[in-house]
C-alpha cells in the first residue's frame, strides 16, 4: 500500500530524514518508534503532503502512484489519513459541520453525492458514543478548548468517519490517561482490517500493548536502525533508545 524508497528530507538545510526505506503492505500494522526529535512527525507530514519540506531524494508511492507531487487534499481523497500529534483548533466552526465538510469534500472528488444529513448524524453520534464522547461534543467548536484527550479522540472520530485506507497515527497515545488510551486503542483495533494499513508512530510502548503491530521499526536520526516483530518493543523498553543509534 505504501512504499517509501530512499527518502531524504531536510528543513532549513537540516537533514531530518536520511535515506529512509519503509514499506507497509495492505492489511498490516507497522509501528515506528523513536525518541523525541528523531523525525517522526516530519515523516508523517511528508507522507500526508504538508508544505515546507525539502524533499532531497527518493519517492513515496501509495498504491503504486508516486504521491510526492500530489496535493495534500488529493492524498486525503486517495485514502491517506493522518492523526495529528497536535490537532488544530478552528474557532467558530462546530465539530459536526467540520466533519460534514470533510466527508462531503472527499465524496465530491470521488463523484459521490453529499451524505444524507440524517444518516450522517446517526453515524457520528454512534462513533462519538463508542469513543465515550457526549453528544454535545459534536456541537462544540472544532477542537477549541478541548482537553488533550478529547482532541485525540476527535482524531479517531474523524478516522472512523472518513474510513481511510492508510492511517498515519502520529503519537496518538501522547497525553492520554489509561481509560482514554484503552478507548482509542479499541477504536483503532476495530477499524484495522485486511484492506487497510496503519503506520503507528509512537514514543512509548504502552499503545502497542493494546494494538499489536505486525512489524516494529526503531527510528533514530531520520532512519531505521533496527527492525523486528512485536518482541522488539519489549527489548526497547528494557534497553532504551540509547542502545539503538
Amino acid at each position: 500500500m505504501l512504499k517509501i524508497s530512499n527518502l531524504s528530507v531536510s528543513v532549513e538545510n537540516k537533514l531530518i530524514i536520511n535515506n529512509l526505506d519503509l514499506e507497509i503492505d495492505e492489511g498490516k500494522k507497522v509501528a515506528v518508534m523513536g525518541p523525541n526529535g528523531s523525525g517522526k512527525s516530519t515523516l508523517s507530514n511528508v507522507i500526508s503532503g504538508k508544505p515546507g519540506y525539502d524533499i532531497k531524494e527518493g519517492s513515496i508511492e501509495f498504491e503504486d502512484t508516486d504521491i510526492l507531487k500530489v496535493d495534500p487534499e488529493e492524498r486525503a481523497t486517495m485514502g491517506i489519513f493522518m492523526a495529528f500529534q497536535y490537532p488544530v483548533e478552528i474557532p467558530g466552526i462546530a465539530n459536526s459541520s467540520f466533519l460534514r465538510t470533510a466527508i462531503n469534500s472527499i465524496r465530491k472528488k470521488n463523484n459521490i453525492d453529499p451524505v444524507n444529513t440524517r444518516i450522517f448524524l446517526e453515524e457520528i453520534n454512534q462513533i462519538a458514543s463508542k469513543l465515550g464522547l457526549d453528544k454535545s461534543f459534536l456541537s462544540r467548536d472544532m477542537n477549541a478548548g478541548f482537553s488533550g484527550g478529547e482532541k485525540k479522540k476527535n482524531e479517531i472520530l474523524q478516522l472512523l468517519l472518513l474510513k481511510p485506507k492508510l492511517c498515519v497515527l502520529d503519537e496518538i497515545d501522547s497525553g492520554l490517561d489509561i481509560d482514554s488510551l484503552k478507548v482509542i486503542s479499541k477504536g483503532i483495533s476495530e477499524y484495522s482490517n485486511k484492506k487497510n494499513s496503519m503506520l503507528i508512530i509512537t514514543h512509548y510502548q504502552r499503545l502497542l500493548d493494546h494494538v499489536i503491530p505486525d512489524e516494529v521499526h526503531i527510528f533514530n536520526n531520520g532512519k531505521i536502525v533496527e527492525s523486528g516483530d512485536h518482541n522488539l518493543v519489549k527489548i526497547l523498553e528494557e534497553k532504551g533508545y540509547k542502545e539503538f543509534s
Binding site: S48, G49, K50, P51, G52, D71, P72, E73, R75, A76, T77, F81, M82, F84, P87, V88, E89, I90, P91, G92, I93, F98, T101, A102, I103, S105, I106, K109, D141, M142, Q158, L162
Partner: peptide, 30 residues
C-alpha cells in the same frame, strides 16, 4: 489564517478555498 489550520483542513480532504471559507466563517460566526 495559520498554515497549521489550513493544512489540517487540506489533510481532511477540504480544498484550500473551502478551508479558507470555513475558517473565515468561523471567525465571523458571532
Amino acid at each position: 489564517i495559520s498554515e497549521e489550520q489550513l493544512f489540517f483542513c487540506l489533510q481532511r480532504g477540504i480544498t484550500e478555498e473551502d478551508a479558507t471559507a470555513l475558517i473565515v466563517n468561523g471567525f465571523c460566526r458571532e
